[in-house]
Amino acid sequence: MATKTSAEIIKDGLWNNNPALVQVLGLCPLLAVTSTVVNAVGLGLATLLVLIGSNLSVSIIRNFVSESVRLPAFVMIIASFVTCAELLMQAFTYELYQILGIFIPLIVTNCAILGRADAFASKNPPIPAVLDGAMTGLGFLGVLIVLGGMRELVGQGTLFVDMNLLFGPEAADWVIHPFANYPDMLFMVLPPGAFIGLGLLIALKNSIDTHLAERQKAAQPEPVSTGSKRVRVTGNIS
């Protein structure tokens, strides 16, 4: 397997192989907690921490774990980092931890994390593995924030409400009210709104990819046709 460059790892994690928009993994927490931006950021940061830590650990032990216990070992590593993230949230952002509830422990079952550990970290040195985990986590976090912002804005008419739950009392004034007397649209806050929002984001990404591919194709010079030459054979064939 050819080793990826750092640029390829970054581009894959953030865009080309985004876990939410391309692989369509981790949909359970993604759809469940993105009713507000603060929920999305909380879950996204916890997932980012687990991805970086598990990728680093799996890369370090990759040459010491036999094939028969490889996947159970990866799951144990992921579960350990999820426990660390859970304890950190209980200690510093307890109210947000209570809101996210079961979806923090469920990070263990996020297929994107185990997939990166098995497909990349177990086959590459620690530094590329950490970069892959960071970029994959940032790609997932970005989708969470955009989807959370979309649902919060359309559903409640606000942005960045309750950010003090994650960033402290000074973030209480971050809330934005773009519309006056906005009628709440409960549909976007409920699960159907999450599916519609994610579908729109996937469609937007596919549209951008198609547009970029067409521009790249149009920018390539057309091959010059040299025509065909006819060769006339004379004489006898013996």
Score class of each variant (00 low, 15 high):
V38L: 02
N39I: 01
A40C: 07
A40P: 04
G42L: 04
L43F: 00
G44F: 00
G44P: 06
A46T: 01
T47L: 04
T47R: 06
L48E: 02
L49K: 01
L51I: 02
I52G: 00
I52Y: 05
G53P: 01
G53L: 02
G53M: 01
G53N: 06
S54R: 02
S54V: 06
L56H: 08
L56G: 08
L56F: 15
S57Q: 08
I60D: 02
I60T: 03
I60A: 09
I61C: 12
I61Y: 14
R62K: 02
R62L: 06
N63W: 10
N63L: 14
N63Y: 13
F64G: 09
F64P: 08
F64I: 11
V65S: 06
V65Y: 05
V65L: 08
S66A: 14
E67K: 15
E67G: 15
S68F: 12
S68M: 12
V69R: 09
V69L: 09
V69N: 05
L71Q: 15
P72I: 01
P72F: 10
P72C: 07
P72Q: 05
P72G: 06
A73V: 13
F74C: 12
M76R: 10
M76V: 13
M76W: 13
I78Q: 07
I78P: 05
A79M: 09
F81G: 06
T83W: 10
T83P: 09
T83S: 13
A85Y: 04
E86I: 03
E86Y: 15
E86C: 11
L87K: 09
L87H: 08
M89D: 03
A91V: 07
A91M: 06
F92C: 08
T93G: 08
T93R: 11
Y94W: 12
Y94C: 12
E95Q: 14
Y97M: 13
Y97V: 09
Y97C: 12
Y97F: 15
Q98W: 09
Q98I: 14
I99K: 11
I99L: 10
L100C: 07
